[in-house]
Design a protein around this nucleic acid. Structure first.
Length: 887
RNA sequence: GCGGACGUGGCGAAACUGGUAGACGCACGAGACUUAAAAUCUUGCGCCGCAAGGCUUACGGGUUCGAGUCCCGUCGUCCGCACCA
């Protein structure tokens, strides 16, 4: 079969070569790179550094196309920067702790550790088959004892530095995973991993004090100019800074619960104080709790609020409900009294858990007041509107305007009124203290890191009945996970291990108990980028080395980590600075969030999803139809969606690499779509890519066989110059596009170059003999082609490099220098517009002045005809661009 | 509801700071080679029109010699946040 094919090819193409055999060549070049340790990075290399990093994967079992895209992009940058003379750090590791390993343990009776390390072995092999230029000598997994020991040390350092606290708090409890979730891990009221409805529980938890850095994390966002605006906005909103006033209200009469003479609220609208008509407390507010103790109706109301879920559906439809506590508070300026409600829409963990209601200027207060028949009194009216004619009965007025009905505030703008109220209340004394203080409030909460799981980094703490909470002395680290654990029941296996938790108190020596909570896995990924700089160091980092490598120059990953991982890592870097492990604040100088790989979906007649591998597609003029291979049944072609196991619209990278080769997969995921957008995987596209790579191979090998060896320097003929111009223009364009991470554009420029070289080769072979400058020019152009392709298709590039008879590895060859003279044309062809419409072209010398261009244009037939003998009203000449004649 | 991004052929897209709209790829059509198919090569391909020519960057206005690009409005899509006082 093979032989027959070759004979036929040979018949028509005397110089024909074998088809490029990706499988064979890729394995060979990967072995060559490994053998010569091309991608192992030396910390002492004096060249300028460049740290490129892709978000490390969770070892779920197999890599998917999303990984292929992510790592292909990073590899292009790494290989390009290496060729540009940088000392490149491009490491890889595994985000290896987490729930799925425990789920596997429960379902398949396999230990989380062996499950994880087996997956890592499989996925490492898959990544290696992609030919990524990674420094595998620095590889680690976060579940390696060597890694999490250092993480425990960081935790203890943070504890000493006051960056860790332990407190009781209401937590999001995932009843399926039986663990606590951070707010960020609750999506639409459900656990981000299990999808179970989250419950509220009171637990004692460990927290990292990220709120200490709220202001800094916010303001520093402005300096991250190489981050997507979108991500910065999301973080800004997440931190949620707001400036306002804490105001204390006096409780009227003697009805207040013991010790409570005032209630404090937080407001960002102190200007609307004269529009107040009630005060609302969270159901969890201490005053409400105290009152509920001897008020069964109020207690019932509080219970009802707790039962209300937190899901979006519930919240959106939930009506504002309140319970009149019977308390009254005194208005600080007017002395009027207002009712105090417990209300379901007031959150205990924002501000003070209490607010004053101003229905005229707040949507929620408006709804609440309408329901309970409370006064709705406007105190701000739009400029130029008659206050008497202004109504807020139907909707609150939320914009800026002019104060009315507000005594000393009347006539002021909203900002001025806020300031005036703040000043006045600060000087009013209530119960021995100012009635109000200015406050900046953040939506950001401290980061609860306790997880009631086995497969995570143990929190290095010991609980002693006498000494209380005692940190594990650093000399006693690591606190290693025990291997002998059972997963026959839900909950935390560490908690029911017979001996692991039993330990003597390091302080008093009496029997004590280990903390059995482990850390949120987001802790693991908050400093791995620093550990890569010195993966074998005894300390978490070698500060001088970390400082030399960091920040990561280009970080690439999915948008799904826009808040969680990236915000935690920014905090962690600050905390590591505070504890002397690094001396910078921002870990990621450049951030790029790549789009997903999507694919068509297919449905069988019975409604079940069908995978692309189980069907064939027929393409006709009329459209596309799909049929199931097993029985020929017609399959409905559905929408294009993110690849997912549930919809079966996945393509396994290994299948692609085995049939087309890694270079085809790499090239395809970089082509067509801009990298930040989704790319649709199609088999037709993959075949097209493969055809193109074969074409390049054919061009290089056939040309190499024909081009005569160089025989001395000859002056460049116009044809040789034209060829080199095409090559150097492509070179410059590819370079610029890769710098800007516009891989799809870089690829288009390479296609153009191949088209030029291909047609020149096909049509002008005789010139190799006639023109002594043509062969060398063609050879140089092919060399440039191979080098600009090398970051994307490194294996094919090496194979071509060697076919061209060049020395060494492309991977070690410096990026070719652009010859600037080849980028400029002697003549330029300018489009000529008449009244803004293109009517002709004019070719003039590159350095022709405006007058000469104008003269040439006015002599054109089309222009003469259009002007009908009259002089032009105006002629606009834009150098090197365009000419517009206004008739 | 609030905030943000985007809207260009059959499809993915390109277009430097306002200067030839549709590069490049996919799909498709025609042709060559072949007994045939695959592969390969040549060629066509925004829309209307036989042509000359006209129209065209979601839609409607505006600024400009000139607008995909800038401004205003409308419609649509996607994403993020969401009782945050």
């Amino acid at each position: 079969m093979r032989r027959q094919l070759d004979l036929r090819t040979a018949k028509r193409h005397p110089m024909a070569t074998e088809r490029y055999n990706a499988r064979e060549a890729e394995a060979r070049w990967q072995a060559a790179w490994t053998k010569t340790k091309v991608f192992e990075t030396d910390n002492d290399d004096p060249r300028p550094k460049y740290y490129v990093l892709e978000m490390f994967p969770y070892p779920s079992g197999r890599i998917h196309m999303g990984h292929v895209r992510n790592y292909s992009m990073g590899d292009v940058v790494a290989r390009f920067k290496r060729a540009k003379g940088f000392n490149v750090l491009h490491p890889m590791g595994w985000d290896a702790f987490g729930m799925p390993a425990e789920n596997a343990a429960m379902q398949n009776k396999v230990h989380p550790k062996s499950w994880t390390y087996q997956n890592i072995a499989t996925m490492r092999g898959q990544l290696q088959s992609m030919g990524l230029s990674l420094d595998w000598s620095r590889e680690f997994a976060t579940c390696d004892l060597e890694y999490y020991t250092r993480q425990q040390r960081l935790f203890l350092d943070f504890l000493e530095a006051g960056l860790v606290t332990r407190r009781q708090s209401k937590v999001n409890w995932d009843p399926v995973d039986m663990t606590v979730l951070a707010n960020e891990q609750v999506i639409d009221g459900r656990g981000w991993r299990s999808g179970a409805l989250v419950e509220q529980r009171e637990l004692t938890q460990w927290f990292l004090k990220i709120t200490d850095y709220a202001e800094d994390l916010l303001t520093a966002l402005d300096g991250l100019d190489r981050w997507p605006e979108k991500v910065r906005t999301m973080q800004k909103n997440w931190i949620g800074r707001s400036e306002g006033l804490r105001i204390r209200f006096e409780i009227a009469g003697n009805h207040a619960p013991a010790g409570q003479r005032t209630v404090e609220v937080f407001t960002t609208r102190p200007d609307t104080l004269y529009g107040m008509s009630f005060l609302a407390l969270s159901p969890d507010h201490p005053v409400v709790k105290a009152l509920a103790a001897d008020n069964p109706d109020l207690a019932a109301f509080v219970d009802e609020c707790h039962r209300m879920g937190t899901s979006v559906a519930v919240l959106e439809t939930a009506e504002k409900k309140g319970f009149d506590t019977g308390l009254k508070v005194v208005h600080p300026f007017t002395g009027e009294t207002f009712p105090v409600y417990a209300a379901n829409f007031v959150l205990m963990d924002y501000g003070t858990g209490a607010l004053f209601g101003c229905p005229a200027h707040d949507q929620r207060d408006h709804e609440f007041a309408s329901r309970y028949g409370l006064a709705i009194r406007p105190v701000v009216v739009p400029d130029g509107v008659d206050p008497a004619a202004f109504s807020v009965a139907d909707a609150p007025f939320l914009d800026d305007g002019r104060l009315v009905n507000s005594d000393f505030l009347d006539g002021l703008s909203v900002p001025d009124a806020k300031e005036a109220v703040a000043r006045r209340l600060e000087s009013v004394t209530l119960d021995g203290a100012p009635a109000a203080t200015r406050q900046v409030n953040y939506r950001l909460r401290d980061w609860g890191i306790s997880r009631q799981r086995y497969w995570g980094c143990p929190i290095p703490i010991i609980h002693c009945d006498d000494c209380g909470v005692v940190p594990v002395p650093k000399a006693d680290l690591p606190v290693a996970l025990p291997d002998d654990v059972e997963f026959d029941r839900p909950g935390n296996p560490l908690d029911r291990h017979p001996t692991w938790r039993l330990v003597d108190c390091p302080r008093c020596g009496k029997p004590a108990r280990r903390e059995t909570d482990t850390m949120d896995t987001f802790v693991d990924s908050s400093w791995y980028f620093a550990r890569f700089t010195a993966p074998d160091a005894d300390d978490p980092t070698i500060p001088a080395v970390a400082d030399a490598w960091l920040p990561v120059d280009q970080y690439i990953g999915g948008i799904e980590h826009a808040i969680l991982h990236l915000l935690y890592s920014r905090f962690f870097t600050r905390a590591m600075k505070a504890t002397g492990h690094v001396s910078l604040e921002e870990p990621f100088r450049g951030l790029f969030t790549q789009g997903m790989v999507v694919h068509e979906t297919y449905k069988a007649p019975d409604g079940s999803w069908i995978s692309p591998a189980e069907l064939r597609i027929e393409e006709t003029e009329g459209g596309r139809r799909a049929f199931r291979l097993s029985d020929g049944a017609e399959v409905t072609i559905g929408s294009v969606e993110k690849m997912s196991k549930s919809k079966k619209n996945t393509v396994d990278p290994t299948d692609i690499i085995e049939s087309y080769g890694a270079d085809t997969a790499r090239w395809f995921v970089l082509s067509d779509s801009p990298p930040e957008r989704d790319v649709e995987w199609t088999d037709a596209g993959a075949q097209g890519t493969n055809r193109f790579l074969q074409r390049v191979w054919r061009l290089v090998t056939e040309a190499a066989a024909v081009i005569p060896p160089a025989a001395g320097a000859a002056p460049r003929s116009p044809e040789a110059t034209a060829l080199l111009k095409a090559a150097h223009k492509a070179l410059a364009a590819v370079e610029e596009s890769i710098e800007g991470l516009r891989f799809n554009v870089a690829l288009a420029k390479i296609y153009e170059l191949v088209n030029v070289l291909g047609s020149t080769f096909a049509n002008d072979k005789a010139r190799f003999q006639a023109d002594p400058s043509f062969g060398p020019a063609f050879r140089e152009a092919l060399g440039i082609l191979v080098q600009v392709m090398a970051p994307m298709t490194p294996h094919l590039a090496e194979e071509c490099w060697s076919a061209l008879g060049r020395d060494g590895l492309v991977a070690l060859t410096p990026w070719p220098a652009v010859e600037p003279a080849l980028l400029v044309e002697d003549e330029v062809t300018l489009p000529v517009q008449i009244n803004g419409k293109k009517r002709a072209d004019v070719t003039v010398p590159r350095d022709a002045d405006a007058a000469a261009v104008e003269a040439a244009v006015l002599a054109l037939d089309a222009v003469v005809k259009a002007l009908e003998g009259k002089p032009p009203r105006k002629v606009i000449v834009v150098a090197q661009r365009i000419v517009n004649v206004v008739a």
